[in-house]
Design a protein around this nucleic acid. Structure first.
Lengths: 133, 133
DNA sequence: CCGTATCCAGGGGGATACTG
DNA sequence: CAGTATCCCCCTGGATACGG
């Protein structure tokens, strides 16, 4: 069946799109967006929520999302300081597709890692599965 | 909490998921998957379809997708040689979510680039929009 | 036609320490 | 609490050239 919508048009668009996709395809962006999709969160909540992310990478990820107009950053100059992050309208419009991809990743962790192991095994031992050496 | 589905469980899963997401989040993966979603394609067709991708990056992207069990690579040893790439079942299960993200990127190119320009302008001229210096 | 090999610049991303 | 700054490694990704 044919798409009613022009999927990939031409030349320049691909380059621009791939640049945009690279922006939101940082190592942690998807997970951060998944968390913010539920509700606004402050820095430390995100840090705890993602788990494994460093302070530095969380900052960079959030700055990048902010730069792309996907999240807002609200500073409350109290003591201790408080900073809340929240998806913009644009951010929410991306959140659902991203959520799908994210859930897919969580659901298929096993399969993916199995496929990788399989592929790597073949690549490492091209002589066959009958124990060489 | 409230979600009926355990979205982001804990610790190790985040690290594994982010690794998986990084794999499929290469600069060109989304575009390649979008093309393969319609039908199997050979190397040169993909090269033409994506436009802007180098031979090297197309090869690496496809190898990576193959490693993750998302595409199959079929070699027909004719002269000239012919190599077809096709989404696996796993690949197809990812294709729809990815398609959503890809379409989102194409639709919002303008907004994103505008947001970036806006952000960069503020970052470059922090003293305000009234001609500083 | 379909790659692989090589060179090379840039940035992603981790660890750690310091500031307001 | 919420960052910045620094160091440093390695991977990404482009260009080019070569091989089957």
């Amino acid at each position: 069946m044919k798409e009613t919508e022009p999927v990939i048009r031409h030349t320049a668009d691909c380059l621009r799109a791939s640049r945009v996709l690279s922006s939101i395809a940082g190592k942690w962006s998807v997970l951060v967006i998944m968390l913010l999709r539920e509700q606004p969160l402050r820095f430390s909540e995100l840090k705890r929520g993602v788990d494994g992310i460093s302070q530095r990478m969380l900052t960079l990820t959030l700055r990048n999302l902010e730069r792309n107009g996907l999240v807002t950053r609200t500073v409350t100059p109290s003591i201790p300081p408080r900073v809340d992050y929240e998806l913009t309208g644009l951010g929410h419009s991306l959140a659902d597709p991203i959520q799908s991809v994210g859930l897919w990743a969580f659901r298929h962790l096993e399969k993916i890692e199995a496929a990788q192991a399989h592929y790597d095994a073949r690549a490492t031992a091209p002589s066959g599965p009958d124990g060489e050496n």
